[in-house]
């Protein structure tokens, strides 16, 4: 992994610590992603005055397990005329890039494994699996690379809906990526660093030092682009059932489809963490509330916001998305960057 070169520069973080962290991220975020599906169904149900899953386990909690069993035991179908290799690789790309992106963001507080545990005792487990000094760039780049998943999947499956889904992936990617980059540029200029740690330090001055107050426009732009990036309503063009069946995922079933799903939910978490760290004061303590609880709150809020928006808003057409990104958001982002620059100079 790309982390190994960095370990030498950071004396206290050992390879074992990073490995433990990686396993932790994989295990916990997969579980949280599974739990996210449950939350999504529950919250959407409540917003439509339904009950959501109720019958499997208390409050329907074991529905996740039931879904997992279903996904694992489903027949694995590769369509006849599909390009089998690419068809099989595509979901792995989505899931893998989603988790690799998580390597660059701070998830959970750091801790040291107590001494009494054999072998691993005393190992320091960092908060970020690899504190790359271009953290934001790395995360955004990884999530962008994740778009290869839907793109290849759609093109490999020899299905018209898949092709349309892949085409939509391409235009969506072309549209929002510019906005993501430009909207993050303004806060990056303010901090003068691409490291998420520096972002966190820059906002350690309490509530008023959060970048959302200095960069409200950038925050809104980033949120909009984030919704497009994670392929959520109102920008869920890739797999909108009413129009393209399931888009790129039409021919997928079982665990391959599940990997797309886990990837999507992991991306939601990543975008939530990014938004929280870059704009909402990150994992700094807030009054008497510890920082790691604060970041949980913030991430939970963004996650809820995504579900909330899905319940409330209709989704846009592909041409509307391109219109929005290129003709509205990008000019605003550029103006925002210029204005930030001028203000910094003066």
């Amino acid at each position: 992994m790309e982390t190994t070169t960095l370990i030498e520069q950071l004396p206290e973080v050992t390879a074992a610590g990073v490995a433990i962290k990686a396993i932790l991220i994989l295990a916990i975020i997969s579980a949280v992603a599974g739990f996210g599906t449950y939350l999504e169904r529950k919250v959407l149900a409540f917003m439509q005055r339904r009950l959501g899953p109720t019958h499997v386990g208390p409050y329907g909690l074991l529905q996740i397990a039931a879904d997992g069993i279903k996904l694992f035991t489903k027949e694995d179908i590769v369509p006849q005329h599909a390009n089998a290799l690419i068809f099989k690789v595509a979901p792995v790309i989505t899931a893998a890039t989603a988790f690799i992106a998580l390597a660059g963001v701070p998830v959970f507080p750091d801790f040291t494994i107590p001494e009494f545990i054999p072998v691993l005792g005393g190992t320091f487990v960092p908060s970020i699996a690899s504190d790359v000094n271009v953290g934001i760039l790395f995360v955004i780049g990884m999530m962008a690379a994740g778009l290869y998943g839907p793109l290849l999947a759609g093109m490999a499956q020899a299905n018209k809906w898949g092709i349309i889904g892949a085409a939509r992936t391409a235009i969506q990617f072309l549209s929002y990526e510019v906005v993501t980059g430009l909207s993050l540029l303004a806060p990056i200029m303010l901090v003068g660093s691409l490291s998420l740690i520096d972002f966190n330090e820059a906002q350690s001055g309490g509530f008023t030092s959060w970048f959302i107050w200095q960069q409200p426009v950038a925050f809104v732009l980033f949120l909009i682009a984030g919704f497009a990036e994670t392929n959520r309503t109102p920008f869920d063009l890739l797999e909108h059932e009413a129009e393209v069946i399931s888009g790129y995922a039409t021919e997928y079933s079982g665990m391959r489809w599940g990997m797309f799903f886990i990837g999507e939910y992991a991306n939601m978490i990543t975008i939530s963490i990014l938004a929280a760290v870059v704009f909402l004061g990150g994992y700094n303590d807030f009054g008497f509330i510890a920082g790691w609880i604060m970041i949980l709150f913030k991430v939970a809020f963004f996650f809820f916001l995504m579900l909330w928006v899905r319940a409330a808003w209709p989704h846009v057409r592909p041409d509307q998305l391109m219109w929005l990104c290129w003709k509205v958001l990008m000019p605003i982002a550029v103006i925002n960057v210029v204005v930030t620059g001028i203000v910094m100079m003066v």
């Binding site: 917003m47 439509q48 005055r49 339904r50 009950l51 909330w308 928006v309 319940a311 409330a312 808003w313």
Partner: peptide
């Protein structure tokens, strides 16, 4: 207007959860 939409959904959620207006008949 978009926030009006968000408000409506959250109002319905509160209606469902706390005011006993859940639609579902089991």
């Amino acid at each position: 207007e978009l926030f009006v939409g968000l408000g409506v959904t959250v109002r319905e959620m509160i209606n469902a959860l706390f005011r006993g207006q859940m639609h579902t008949v089991k």
